[in-house]
Amino acid sequence: MSTLTRPTAPERLVTEQRAQANRRRRRREGRIGWGFFAPFAILFVLTFVIPILVSIRSSFFTEKAAGDSLYGGGGMVETFAFLDNYAQVLGNATFWEGMGRVLLFGAFQIPVMLGGALILALLLDSFIVRRVAFFRLSYFLPYAIPGVIAALVWTYIFSPGLSPINQTLGSISEWLTGLLGNNVDLTIDFFAPGTIIASMATMTTWTFMGYNMLIFLAALQAIPHDLYEAARLDGAGEFDIVRRIKVPMVGQATLLAVLLSIIGTVQLFNEPTVLAAVNPWMGNDYTPMMLAYSSMMGTTSPSGAGPASAVSISMAVIAGILAAIFALVQKRSTR
């Protein structure tokens, strides 16, 4: 009786030992856990946290010549500028023009690209397509081509003298001119100030549509197939399944794809940089990212790490605000 209610001394010892062993195991597990976490944590701090902190710090400083003679004083001194760099960025018409360009670009390019990506993903997820692996890889392939190389290829396709598109359109124009009697010119100036944003949008859509398709396809394949069977039993056709099950179920994936696209758009750099090499009128500050780069390289004023960091962080804040607005709107509309 007493053995049931009160543990004997040896029994107490055993419980004590067990508890100790448990604590030891937990500590060891904790150490192992931290051990597994460490590679990520160290890399995260080194390549993510520290650069961000350095960049934020540097955005509050400017470099000025050490002396006030013609050539300064043989060195630069870093001076605390507080919000001067930010005031400079926010009051800089070039920055806002660039921001306007990338937003205009995004307003058209993101819906077209993601719409196309969703359609491709739905096609691959349907029963129409065989050899899904082949198509999946071929749609994704443009993303695997380095951005600058892709931009160079597109520059050739768009280049006024060499464009195969314009050569075709040119022959059609000639044929039409002969047919109709009056002068027809269907050729497109892809590099004109009014059309270059559309040309860039074409380039990025080509690169990223397959990438976004993969995001959608993964979401589609995660949908349990018994949902489709249940719907079919209820008499739903394939289009009903797409409209009522598949599209609503990829909502989270859409959110991710849009957020990534907004960030990518605000940071637009490769395409305009390559195009600016053949279209000098674009300058070296056509997009905010190009402005940041030129500030850093000393090819625009104000230059240096401080102004460049301020541009970068302003871009990040704007991208963050846009992403937050979109996430909120989406949350509201799905509720």
């Binding site: 390549t47 961000i52 960049s55 605000v266 940071q267 940041a292 871009m315 990040a316 963050g320 992403a323």
Partner: peptide, 11 residues
Amino acid sequence: MGIAAAATMLF
């Protein structure tokens, strides 16, 4: 994410 990418570009 945006800050990070922009900052790593500088760094």
